[in-house]
Design a protein around this nucleic acid. Sequence first.
DNA 1: TTGAGTGCAAACTTTTTGCAATGTT
DNA 2: AACATTGCAAAAAGTTTGCACTCAA
Lengths: 157, 157
Amino acid sequence: MVSNPSNFEAAKSIFTAYLETKLLRKTPERYAILEEIYSRNDHFEVEDLYISMKNKKYQVSRATVYNTLDLLVECDLVKKHQFGKNLAQYEKAYGSKQHDHLICVDCHKVMEFCDPRVQNIQNMVGDMLKFKVMHHSLIFYGTCERTDCEHKTKEAS
Amino acid sequence: MVSNPSNFEAAKSIFTAYLETKLLRKTPERYAILEEIYSRNDHFEVEDLYISMKNKKYQVSRATVYNTLDLLVECDLVKKHQFGKNLAQYEKAYGSKQHDHLICVDCHKVMEFCDPRVQNIQNMVGDMLKFKVMHHSLIFYGTCERTDCEHKTKEAS
DNA sequence: TTGAGTGCAAACTTTTTGCAATGTT
DNA sequence: AACATTGCAAAAAGTTTGCACTCAA
């Protein structure tokens, strides 16, 4: 979901507060990664982020990217997804409203939607099973009808 | 969800029909893997299956396990999950009713629940976004209140 | 000053692939 | 007999780890 540009500033304050609370160091690499993430929209993977940063002022290592992403997920500034592949995908979380995803199994496009009923189900199921639900992941897999959907021709049977 | 033992026989027929339609070979390895899967309950990973089979009459290779799992997922006899980790988990699908999952972030226990409203949301969102939804994945993450939940003590902050 | 954090490369884990041997059709 | 399928081991792909160096506190 599109978010306004000042979200980075807000995210930065939250991150600073988090680092201070946890007695972690406020390194330039960590802020550079946060900035890069908040300059992006939609979903990206670690390698995307790493490559983008390689081409900019901050050359960070993959280890630092992984490390920082963990911190950002921990303080809810970034969401981590596992969209069926063995490859984590991330998106910024601050200032975007709660949403879930649809993924086209042909062109792999990721779309988003909101439906308040998901929250109701979450609350009810949590109560019923004595389970304190903290977050959820709802993904619909199917085919989109975009004209530019690159329908992979499945192996002829 | 628990299923009755004869599900293996039914699954076997379905698999045979699938293999014949696709002009694939009916090898003993494929049936042995199907049998092993249908003798299990709940969720397992590739290595679990591979190890179990190593200790039985059929010694199959990992490559064959992966290959066969793909076929079984394709013909809906097995469901593949990506529960947040970079590790695929599977469960038999025939004869079990549609359900979704709750996962305890502390003890990693996987629980199941059914809620028909998920289907409604799926239909509605699909219609709205002109997306033909084929299946979904809904996972609630939280903490269970089982007395035997091995609450990992998070690093003291 | 000092030890948390970084970069790099090596190690690990899960999955995929290449190829010779096997066995279903 | 032909060639899809198997087993094995090597390669990929993504992530984690070990260690010496660096720099935020």
